[in-house]
């Protein structure tokens, strides 16, 4: 009987030690986790502020103003878009080695079509 008592006591002590070690380890890990969470939280807060600033700076009104003032861009009307045929190309003024722009474009399109085929 006493052997059983010693064995049980021994198991209980070992279990206690293991339990204590695990418990400490969990506590440490939790403390570390809380620290990490705090850091993540702080980063998230900073990220939100940056995102908000970004949204403020990319407000369509601001973008439109910047595009107009800095790049000279403005909204195009559809009737401003035309086809190449609409331009009257003066062959004599736009000649390159005896070839007019019109004939150059024609050759280019023919070549492109040939490649595609």
């Amino acid at each position: 009987m006493w052997k059983l008592s010693i064995l049980c006591s021994f198991i209980a002590i070992i279990t206690g030690i293991i339990l204590n070690v695990i418990s400490n380890s969990i506590q440490n890990k939790q403390a570390h986790l809380v620290k990490l969470e705090k850091q993540i939280n702080e980063k998230k807060e900073k990220l939100r502020i940056l995102e908000t600033e970004w949204e403020y700076h990319t407000h369509p009104k601001k973008l439109m103003e910047i595009a107009e003032n800095e790049l000279g861009m403005s909204s195009r009307e559809v009737d401003q878009i035309g086809q190449i045929k609409m331009f009257k190309i003066r062959g004599s003024a736009w000649t390159m080695g005896g070839l007019s722009t019109e004939s150059l474009l024609k050759t280019h399109f023919e070549k492109s079509n040939g490649k595609m085929n």
Binding site: C8, A12, T15, I18, L19, I22, I26, Q30
Partner: peptide
């Protein structure tokens, strides 16, 4: 009885997280 107490505490601590 003592073992059941030990193990219940043990499992509870393990399962806590």
């Amino acid at each position: 009885f003592i073992f059941s107490i030990f193990f219940s505490i043990f499992f509870q601590v393990l399962s806590f997280p």
